[in-house]
Amino acid sequence: MSTWTKERLHEIATTDDLHIAPFREDGTTTGTPTWIWSVVVDGDLYVRAYNGTSSRWYRAASKQKAGQITAAGKTNDVTFEQVQGEVNDQIDAAYRLKYASSPYLNPMIGDRARAATVRILPKS
C-alpha cells in the first residue's frame, strides 16, 4: 500500500481546493471533478460526501475504487477506501478544526456524511 509523502500531505492539508474525480465505468476516464472538503488524520487523507451515500462521486468512488484528485495545483492518481468505525470521531474533530466557521460543518459531521467517508491513498 502506498502512502503520501509528508510534503504532499501537508500541501493537501493546508489547502481548501481538493477536487475529486473517480473513474467512470471504463476504469480509465474520470468523471467531472467535484470540489470537496478534505482532512488529514494520523497521516491519512479523508473526504466525505455532503449528500451521503447517494452522492454521485461517492457511488463512483465506491464502485471503481480509483480515480484522481487535484489539490494545491497538482493532480494525483489515487485509490479510494470506504471508512467505518471509531476513526470517524477523529475525522469529525479534524472537520471541526479546519472548517469551524462554515455553516456546512454540522451536516459534514452528521450521520449522512459520516456514512460516506472515504480514505484517499496515492496509487502505487
Rank of each mutant, 00 (worst) to 15 (best):
N88T: 11
P107C: 06
I69F: 02
M1E: 11
A94Q: 04
D17W: 10
V118N: 01
D26I: 07
I20S: 05
T15R: 15
T75D: 03
D26M: 05
S2N: 11
Y95I: 12
T14C: 07
N76K: 07
D42A: 12
F80E: 01
A100W: 14
M1G: 15
M108Y: 11
T79A: 08
A113H: 00
P103T: 13
E11C: 12
L121Y: 06
D16K: 04
I120L: 10
Y58D: 05
W57L: 10
A72I: 13
I120S: 03
A113Q: 02
V87A: 00
K6E: 15
D44E: 12
Q84P: 00
G73C: 08
L45V: 12
I36C: 01
G27N: 11
R59Q: 15
R24F: 03
Y95L: 14
K6C: 06
L9A: 05
D92R: 06
N88F: 00
Y104I: 08
N106Y: 09
T53G: 07
Q68A: 13
T5A: 04
N76F: 15
D16V: 03
R8Q: 14
H19R: 14
E25T: 09
D17L: 10
A113G: 01
A61W: 00
V41W: 02
Y46R: 05
D92K: 10
I36T: 14
Q68L: 09
G110Q: 03
N88A: 02
K74T: 14
T15F: 08
R24T: 14
D77L: 11
I109G: 00
H10A: 15
S54N: 13
H10R: 15
A93G: 04
Q68F: 09
S54W: 04
G43H: 05
S38L: 04
V83I: 15
A13P: 02
K63E: 14
A60L: 14
Q84T: 12
S101F: 06
V39C: 02
P107S: 09
E11R: 15
A60W: 11
Q90P: 05
R8S: 13
G43A: 04
A113D: 00
Q64L: 07
K123T: 11
I109M: 00
P22V: 03
D16C: 03
N51A: 14
S54T: 13
R56S: 15
S55C: 06
D44C: 15
R59M: 15
T70P: 07
K6H: 13
S54R: 10
Y95M: 14
F80K: 05
H19D: 04
D17F: 12
Q84A: 08
T30S: 14
